[in-house]
Write a protein that binds this DNA or RNA. Structure first.
Lengths: 239, 239
DNA sequence: TCAAAAGTGTTACGAATACACCCATGC
DNA sequence: GCATGGGTGTATTCGTAACACTTTTGA
């Protein structure tokens, strides 16, 4: 609008923040860093950082994840824009507009601090106390979004390793939603949706050390679920 | 993370872009401006502009809409973040990160150019030729998102005036999806979903000049649809 | 009387639910 | 054997699809 003067407008800092979710020991975990600097030094926060001049928000998200937590070249990392948080005052230092991402991981590799993060840890979802900035809000939004997308997309496979059992897939839904599902019905539903999963022939794996070995499946080619796999309507939730 | 120097990082310009959709004469229309300045002077583009230092993206979106098209104090304007476009090079002048919004309007008030927009017009969706910047992509994303959200939210009422008939609501679905729906079934489905619509007692309105006057409804309090109102699975669409 | 739009009824099919039941493995 | 987890079968219930039919208006 005002032509070409790069400094004609108040400069905005643009950052990315990542809500990295995974399943560990049957519980939803989130990747948090401990901030090494003010503001909020010593507090926990979502990993993230400033965009560099030549990279998109998606690129910056992967870079920051690698720098701050050691997660790089992660196979199967699902990265997806959540929304952008731009309220004035969300960072006390200056005007910061942050593009938030939700990231899903099949396994939970060990992480370590780096860059501006004093340390990095997997923390069970919901036990992290107040986070820095508006990161509690971002984390809640990420959880809501992931829970909703499980219903009508194949997103659940992003929590699973390349080959997985239907029991593992079901535990993804149960963990994220916090509900129990009927195993036979879940199984039929998933197998009846073309492209959701495809069998890996002739393979099986013991899961809990006990029980019948389960057949293995791969993620299929579909991305959306028609019809959707609706979560059971809990009372108290708005219809 | 380099502390407090506002100019330590390359300055990013932050803008908002709006895909404003409405129904006119039974067809989906989008609000486009004609750019008055380079780059893309004379081309059509989505309305939008730069964030100011003291406002959020949502605030900026409403302000730019008023400035560039004369739409201000619009009752029933539904505004919703779409995603943020941050690829380097999407604006030839400098690094611009744009927060895109989808906006839905019940009626289509007359609009006029203003600010940096030479003119503003309602244009039938799909007839606008190539838009400036990556605005074709943004517009497509907005249409996809709205179409998808009709399935599992009450978003359709955002296209309707405060009081509307079920026929009008059905036409929203049919226009956005480009399909025909069975009227009796649509009717039952909508009325069976608590909180979707509520009747306005003792009122009726003629719709097409002919036919039986239709009962009027208001938007209800629900925001999500359980179970969803799925669009008919067209062949060719991925399941 | 006709066309157009709203509204009701009915039947058939398919999906989701809630189970009971069988299979394979480790201990 | 028995506990544990995987896998199959089935009856019932509910939602949807398809379509016939009635009602109320303007022309």
């Amino acid at each position: 609008m005002d032509g070409y003067d790069k400094y004609a407008h108040e400069p905005f800092a643009v950052t990315v923040d990542l809500a990295v979710l995974t399943l560990r020991d049957g519980a939803l975990h989130v990747l948090l860093v401990e901030r090494g600097q003010e503001p909020y030094a010593g507090h926990r926060a979502l990993p993230g950082g400033f965009l560099q001049p030549d990279e998109s928000a998606e690129t910056a998200a992967r870079r920051e994840l690698a720098e701050e937590t050691g997660l790089s070249d992660v196979s199967g990392l699902h990265l997806e824009q959540l929304r952008t948080y731009s309220e004035p005052g969300r960072d006390p230092r200056m005007r910061v507009v942050s593009v938030a991402f939700a990231a899903l991981l099949p396994h939970a590799p060990e992480v370590h601090g780096g860059g501006d993060a004093a340390r990095a840890d997997w923390v069970p979802y919901g036990t992290a106390g107040p986070l820095a900035f508006d990161h509690d809000r971002i984390l809640t939004d990420a959880h809501d979004r992931v829970g909703a997308k499980l219903e009508y997309t194949c997103l659940a496979t992003a929590f699973c390793p390349p080959e997985f059992t239907l029991g593992e897939l079901q535990r993804v839904y149960e963990t994220v939603w916090g509900t129990e599902l009927d195993r036979p019905n879940f199984r039929r539903k998933v197998l009846a949706t073309p492209g959701f999963v495809e069998p890996v022939p002739g393979t099986a794996r013991l899961t809990g050390g006990r029980g019948k070995p389960a057949a293995l499946y791969r993620a299929g080619t579909a991305t959306t679920l028609h019809p959707p796999l609706l979560r059971p309507p809990r009372e108290g939730r708005p219809t």
